[in-house]
């Protein structure tokens, strides 16, 4: 049994975690007050104006529509990334076909490619299709990731014994059925992890949505940007918006935090 660490260690970690949480609290603090009292004094006790400030957020930007849009976009992207990654990952991990090695090498090589830098032709294409301002424009370019394929392949390599796929084929099972009944259930833990991280990434996406979406049909991040970019900045209003946008994320974190920690420690995400 290792000995328990000293209070100093808890003290330093405690300070670090408090520092990590502080900006969230500050956001709520400013949001709960009246803009006129902001000057110079910084008591850490919240005021009573949070709900009136939140109401002003709803009047200023289409907050609920933005929240719904963010759910639709991130949900669709996550579903597609997880499904297509598992499908391709299964083929790379467990099926034999000509060109497999070269194709997988290609997937690995594209991991570091900054596809975000292709936004200009993408923007031209969206304008051409008439998708500018519509959710398709932020969904379609994100339906697959090289990382997802790589991640699922690495997991399925060990998760399914080769004999199991062979046995399924002996029983006259098509490969599609083998995927559906053998690979998909076995992939569940890794797929869940990939799903959580894909969802978060999509939820936070900013540059591309800023290019193709507009103020009438925004995602949550774009709605926040519109709140802040007004001519005169009313911080109790803007930070009421950031607080509202943070609450769902914090709830998810409380529920799934343990899995997210495990995922990061397994290298589930690239930075």
């Amino acid at each position: 049994m290792m000995k328990r660490p000293s209070f100093t260690i808890y003290g330093i970690l405690g300070a670090f975690v408090l520092g990590s949480a502080f900006p969230f609290y500050w956001s709520f603090l400013v949001a709960s007050r009246d803009n006129s009292v902001l000057t110079g004094d910084f008591t850490l006790i919240p005021g009573g104006n949070f709900f009136s400030n939140a109401a002003r957020v709803f009047d200023t930007v289409p907050f609920w529509k933005a929240l719904g849009n963010s759910f639709v976009v991130s949900g669709t992207v996550t579903f597609s990334v997880v499904l297509l990654s598992t499908l391709a990952g299964f083929a790379f991990a467990k099926l034999r076909f000509r060109g497999r090695g070269v194709l997988f090498l290609f997937v690995v090589a594209t991991l570091a490619v900054p596809t975000q830098l292709g936004i200009i032709p993408l923007y031209m294409a969206m304008a051409e299709f008439g998708w500018a301002g519509r959710l398709e424009a932020v969904i379609v370019p994100n339906l697959v990731t090289a990382f997802g394929v790589f991640w699922m392949r690495q997991y399925l390599l060990d998760a399914i014994p080769d004999e199991l796929v062979e046995a399924a084929r002996m029983d006259g099972c098509s490969l599609w059925r083998a995927f559906w009944h053998v690979a998909l259930p076995a992939a569940r833990p890794a797929a869940a992890m990939l799903g959580v991280f894909t969802f978060m990434q999509s939820w936070n996406d900013f540059l591309w949505p800023l290019v193709v979406l507009n103020a009438d049909n925004p995602t949550l991040q774009i709605a926040l940007e519109k709140l802040q970019s007004g001519y005169y900045v009313d911080y109790s209003l803007v930070l009421a918006g950031t607080t509202l946008a943070t609450v769902p994320v914090l709830i998810v974190f409380l529920v799934l935090g343990r899995q997210i920690v495990a995922g990061v420690m397994q290298g589930a995400v690239k930075g």
């Binding site: 970690l13 670090f16 975690v17 990590s20 949480a21 900006p23 969230f24 500050w26 956001s27 978060m200 939820w203 936070n204 900013f206 949550l220 991040q221 926040l224 940007e225 802040q228 803007v238 930070l239 950031t242 946008a245 943070t246 994320v249 914090l250 998810v252 974190f253 935090g257 343990r258 997210i260 920690v261 990061v264």
Partner: peptide
């Protein structure tokens, strides 16, 4: 979980903060 908290925050929200 405590040290990972900032990672899950929305980048836009925290930049504004």
């Amino acid at each position: 979980m405590g040290v990972l908290l900032p990672y899950v925050a929305s980048l836009v929200a925290l930049t504004i903060i």
